[in-house]
Protein backbone atom coordinates (compact mmCIF):
# COMPACT_ATOMS: atom_id res chain seq x y z
CA UNK A 1 0.00 0.00 0.00
CA UNK A 2 1.28 3.36 -0.86
CA UNK A 3 0.67 6.35 1.30
CA UNK A 4 -1.89 8.16 -0.86
CA UNK A 5 -3.95 9.16 2.10
CA UNK A 6 -5.65 12.13 0.52
CA UNK A 7 -6.94 10.17 -2.47
CA UNK A 8 -10.24 9.76 -0.71
CA UNK A 9 -10.31 13.40 0.33
CA UNK A 10 -11.42 16.25 -1.93
CA UNK A 11 -9.48 16.78 -5.11
CA UNK A 12 -8.71 20.37 -4.14
CA UNK A 13 -9.56 23.10 -1.74
CA UNK A 14 -10.07 26.78 -2.44
CA UNK A 15 -7.91 29.04 -0.35
CA UNK A 16 -7.67 32.78 -0.20
CA UNK A 17 -4.17 34.02 -0.96
CA UNK A 18 -2.34 37.31 -1.16
CA UNK A 19 0.48 36.98 -3.64
CA UNK A 20 2.89 39.74 -4.51
CA UNK A 21 2.06 40.88 -8.01
CA UNK A 22 3.69 43.36 -10.30
CA UNK A 23 1.35 45.87 -11.85
CA UNK A 24 2.41 47.35 -15.14
CA UNK A 25 0.75 50.73 -15.20
CA UNK A 26 0.50 51.85 -18.80
CA UNK A 27 0.97 55.48 -19.69
CA UNK A 28 1.01 54.76 -23.38
CA UNK A 29 -0.79 52.29 -25.57
CA UNK A 30 1.88 52.36 -28.27
CA UNK A 31 3.37 48.81 -28.43
CA UNK A 32 6.58 50.17 -30.00
CA UNK A 33 7.26 52.52 -27.12
CA UNK A 34 6.43 49.86 -24.55
CA UNK A 35 8.65 47.36 -26.29
CA UNK A 36 11.57 49.80 -26.40
CA UNK A 37 11.24 50.61 -22.71
CA UNK A 38 10.98 46.93 -21.79
CA UNK A 39 14.16 46.21 -23.74
CA UNK A 40 15.94 48.84 -21.64
CA UNK A 41 14.62 47.36 -18.41
CA UNK A 42 15.60 43.89 -19.52
CA UNK A 43 19.24 44.85 -19.95
CA UNK A 44 19.17 46.55 -16.58
CA UNK A 45 17.73 43.74 -14.47
CA UNK A 46 17.53 40.52 -16.46
CA UNK A 47 16.73 38.52 -13.32
CA UNK A 48 13.35 40.21 -13.11
CA UNK A 49 12.26 39.04 -16.55
CA UNK A 50 11.79 35.31 -15.91
CA UNK A 51 8.21 34.81 -17.06
CA UNK A 52 7.17 37.16 -14.27
CA UNK A 53 3.39 37.41 -13.98
CA UNK A 54 2.13 40.98 -14.42
CA UNK A 55 -1.21 42.71 -14.25
CA UNK A 56 -1.69 45.26 -17.02
CA UNK A 57 -3.28 48.35 -15.59
CA UNK A 58 -5.01 50.43 -18.27
CA UNK A 59 -6.71 52.85 -15.94
CA UNK A 60 -4.66 55.81 -17.08
CA UNK A 61 -5.33 55.15 -20.74
CA UNK A 62 -7.86 56.24 -23.22
CA UNK A 63 -8.56 52.65 -24.10
CA UNK A 64 -10.21 53.03 -27.48
CA UNK A 65 -6.78 52.76 -29.09
CA UNK A 66 -5.60 49.79 -27.04
CA UNK A 67 -4.56 46.64 -28.93
CA UNK A 68 -4.57 44.23 -26.01
CA UNK A 69 -3.52 41.19 -28.00
CA UNK A 70 -0.52 42.98 -29.47
CA UNK A 71 0.45 44.30 -26.05
CA UNK A 72 0.39 40.81 -24.56
CA UNK A 73 2.64 39.57 -27.34
CA UNK A 74 5.14 42.36 -26.62
CA UNK A 75 5.15 41.45 -22.93
CA UNK A 76 5.66 37.76 -23.64
CA UNK A 77 8.50 38.47 -26.03
CA UNK A 78 10.24 40.18 -23.08
CA UNK A 79 9.49 37.26 -20.77
CA UNK A 80 6.68 38.93 -18.88
CA UNK A 81 3.51 36.91 -18.48
CA UNK A 82 0.33 38.99 -18.50
CA UNK A 83 -2.19 37.26 -16.24
CA UNK A 84 -4.88 39.90 -15.91
CA UNK A 85 -6.01 43.38 -16.88
CA UNK A 86 -7.11 46.01 -14.43
CA UNK A 87 -9.56 48.77 -15.34
CA UNK A 88 -10.77 49.90 -18.73
CA UNK A 89 -14.07 49.75 -20.52
CA UNK A 90 -16.50 46.88 -21.05
CA UNK A 91 -14.73 46.27 -24.38
CA UNK A 92 -11.38 45.82 -22.66
CA UNK A 93 -12.97 43.42 -20.17
CA UNK A 94 -14.44 41.30 -22.96
CA UNK A 95 -11.20 41.17 -24.94
CA UNK A 96 -9.24 40.28 -21.79
CA UNK A 97 -11.55 37.33 -21.21
CA UNK A 98 -11.30 36.35 -24.84
CA UNK A 99 -7.51 36.28 -24.47
CA UNK A 100 -7.78 34.06 -21.41
CA UNK A 101 -6.80 36.86 -19.01
CA UNK A 102 -8.53 37.80 -15.78
CA UNK A 103 -10.08 41.22 -15.29
CA UNK A 104 -10.03 43.39 -12.17
CA UNK A 105 -12.15 46.47 -11.57
CA UNK A 106 -10.22 49.74 -11.45
CA UNK A 107 -8.66 50.68 -8.13
CA UNK A 108 -10.82 52.94 -6.05
CA UNK A 109 -8.29 55.20 -4.41
CA UNK A 110 -5.20 56.07 -6.40
CA UNK A 111 -2.68 55.36 -3.71
CA UNK A 112 0.91 55.68 -4.84
CA UNK A 113 2.08 52.24 -3.70
CA UNK A 114 3.64 51.07 -6.93
CA UNK A 115 5.25 47.68 -7.03
CA UNK A 116 8.66 46.48 -8.07
CA UNK A 117 10.86 47.10 -11.01
CA UNK A 118 8.56 48.07 -13.82
CA UNK A 119 6.79 50.74 -11.80
CA UNK A 120 6.86 54.17 -13.41
CA UNK A 121 9.42 56.62 -12.03
CA UNK A 122 8.28 57.83 -8.64
CA UNK A 123 7.62 61.49 -7.95
CA UNK A 124 10.61 63.52 -6.73
CA UNK A 125 9.07 63.81 -3.25
CA UNK A 126 9.09 60.04 -2.91
CA UNK A 127 12.70 59.84 -4.12
CA UNK A 128 14.08 61.78 -1.18
CA UNK A 129 12.25 59.52 1.18
CA UNK A 130 13.39 56.37 -0.54
CA UNK A 131 17.04 57.35 -0.60
CA UNK A 132 16.89 58.34 3.04
CA UNK A 133 15.71 54.94 4.24
CA UNK A 134 16.90 51.37 4.05
CA UNK A 135 20.30 51.94 2.45
CA UNK A 136 23.34 49.77 2.91
CA UNK A 137 27.01 50.32 3.73
CA UNK A 138 29.64 47.83 2.63
CA UNK A 139 33.17 48.14 3.98
CA UNK A 140 36.00 46.37 2.17
CA UNK A 141 36.88 45.35 -1.35
CA UNK A 142 34.07 44.11 -3.59
CA UNK A 143 35.86 41.38 -5.51
CA UNK A 144 35.44 39.95 -8.98
CA UNK A 145 32.32 37.78 -9.12
CA UNK A 146 30.73 39.39 -6.06
CA UNK A 147 27.49 41.29 -6.26
CA UNK A 148 26.52 43.77 -3.56
CA UNK A 149 23.09 45.32 -3.77
CA UNK A 150 20.78 47.61 -1.87
CA UNK A 151 17.18 46.72 -2.72
CA UNK A 152 16.09 49.98 -1.12
CA UNK A 153 17.89 53.26 -0.79
CA UNK A 154 21.53 53.99 -1.47
CA UNK A 155 24.54 51.70 -1.47
CA UNK A 156 27.76 53.02 0.03
CA UNK A 157 30.98 51.09 -0.58
CA UNK A 158 33.94 52.11 1.55
CA UNK A 159 36.67 50.44 -0.49
CA UNK A 160 37.29 49.37 -4.04
CA UNK A 161 34.90 47.73 -6.49
CA UNK A 162 37.14 45.52 -8.59
CA UNK A 163 36.77 44.50 -12.23
CA UNK A 164 34.17 41.77 -12.60
CA UNK A 165 32.29 42.87 -9.47
CA UNK A 166 28.83 44.45 -9.55
CA UNK A 167 27.24 46.98 -7.21
CA UNK A 168 23.54 47.84 -7.52
CA UNK A 169 21.13 50.06 -5.66
CA UNK A 170 17.55 51.22 -5.89
CA UNK A 171 18.95 54.65 -5.08
CA UNK A 172 22.43 56.04 -5.63
CA UNK A 173 25.73 54.18 -5.56
CA UNK A 174 28.63 55.80 -3.69
CA UNK A 175 32.10 54.28 -3.93
CA UNK A 176 34.82 55.69 -1.69
CA UNK A 177 37.62 54.09 -3.65
CA UNK A 178 38.34 52.98 -7.20
CA UNK A 179 35.30 51.82 -9.18
CA UNK A 180 36.56 49.21 -11.66
CA UNK A 181 33.52 46.94 -11.90
CA UNK A 182 29.89 47.58 -12.87
CA UNK A 183 27.75 50.08 -11.00
CA UNK A 184 23.99 50.32 -11.47
CA UNK A 185 21.96 52.98 -9.71
CA UNK A 186 18.20 53.39 -9.78
CA UNK A 187 17.58 49.74 -10.61
CA UNK A 188 13.87 50.20 -9.97
CA UNK A 189 13.63 53.13 -12.30
CA UNK A 190 14.55 56.05 -10.03
CA UNK A 191 15.90 58.65 -12.46
CA UNK A 192 16.97 61.17 -9.84
CA UNK A 193 19.77 59.13 -8.34
CA UNK A 194 23.39 58.88 -9.41
CA UNK A 195 26.74 57.17 -9.08
CA UNK A 196 29.58 58.80 -7.18
CA UNK A 197 33.10 57.46 -7.06
CA UNK A 198 36.62 58.45 -6.13
CA UNK A 199 38.39 56.87 -9.06
CA UNK A 200 36.42 56.10 -12.19
CA UNK A 201 37.43 53.04 -14.16
CA UNK A 202 34.04 51.34 -14.37
CA UNK A 203 33.22 48.55 -16.81
CA UNK A 204 29.65 49.78 -16.90
CA UNK A 205 27.72 52.69 -15.43
CA UNK A 206 23.93 52.70 -15.41
CA UNK A 207 21.34 55.03 -13.96
CA UNK A 208 17.72 53.89 -14.31
CA UNK A 209 18.67 51.68 -17.24
CA UNK A 210 20.62 54.29 -19.20
CA UNK A 211 24.12 52.97 -19.42
CA UNK A 212 27.62 53.67 -20.62
CA UNK A 213 30.42 51.18 -21.10
CA UNK A 214 34.04 51.78 -20.30
CA UNK A 215 34.83 52.53 -23.92
CA UNK A 216 32.05 55.15 -24.07
CA UNK A 217 33.59 57.10 -21.21
CA UNK A 218 35.69 60.16 -22.05
CA UNK A 219 39.28 58.99 -21.34
CA UNK A 220 40.10 62.30 -19.65
CA UNK A 221 37.63 61.39 -16.90
CA UNK A 222 39.20 58.03 -16.16
CA UNK A 223 40.77 57.66 -12.72
CA UNK A 224 39.22 60.93 -11.56
CA UNK A 225 36.54 61.66 -8.97
CA UNK A 226 33.18 61.96 -10.68
CA UNK A 227 29.45 61.97 -10.35
CA UNK A 228 27.22 60.26 -12.87
CA UNK A 229 23.59 61.25 -13.35
CA UNK A 230 20.82 61.48 -15.89
CA UNK A 231 20.39 64.70 -17.80
CA UNK A 232 17.76 64.78 -20.52
CA UNK A 233 17.82 60.99 -20.78
CA UNK A 234 21.57 61.07 -21.30
CA UNK A 235 24.05 59.74 -18.81
CA UNK A 236 26.32 62.60 -17.90
CA UNK A 237 29.66 62.13 -16.17
CA UNK A 238 31.07 65.21 -14.47
CA UNK A 239 34.14 65.84 -12.41
CA UNK A 240 33.47 66.28 -8.71
CA UNK A 241 35.66 69.03 -7.43
Amino acid sequence: MSLKVDQTATAFTFKGGMLPMTVMELNSSDPERISAQLAGKLSQSPAFFQHTPVVLSVEKLDDTSLALERLCAVCRSHKLLPVAVRGGSEGIKQSAWALGLGWFPPQESRESRTLASVAPPPQPAAVVEASGSGGRIFRGTVRSGQQISAAEGDLVVVGAVNAGAEVLAAGSVHVYGPLRGRALAGIHGDRECGIFCHELHAELLSVAGNYKRLEDIDPSLLNTTVQVRLRDDQLSIEALV
Binding site: T141, R143, S144, G145, Q146, N162, A163, G164, A165
Partner: peptide, 12 residues
Protein backbone atom coordinates in the same frame (compact mmCIF):
# COMPACT_ATOMS: atom_id res chain seq x y z
CA UNK B 1 44.94 39.21 -11.07
CA UNK B 2 41.24 39.07 -11.81
CA UNK B 3 41.06 35.33 -11.08
CA UNK B 4 42.93 35.88 -7.82
CA UNK B 5 40.42 38.56 -6.94
CA UNK B 6 37.63 36.05 -7.53
CA UNK B 7 39.36 33.48 -5.33
CA UNK B 8 39.73 36.06 -2.56
CA UNK B 9 35.98 36.60 -2.74
CA UNK B 10 35.43 32.85 -2.31
CA UNK B 11 37.91 32.68 0.57
CA UNK B 12 35.81 35.30 2.32
Amino acid sequence: VRDSDRILGLLA
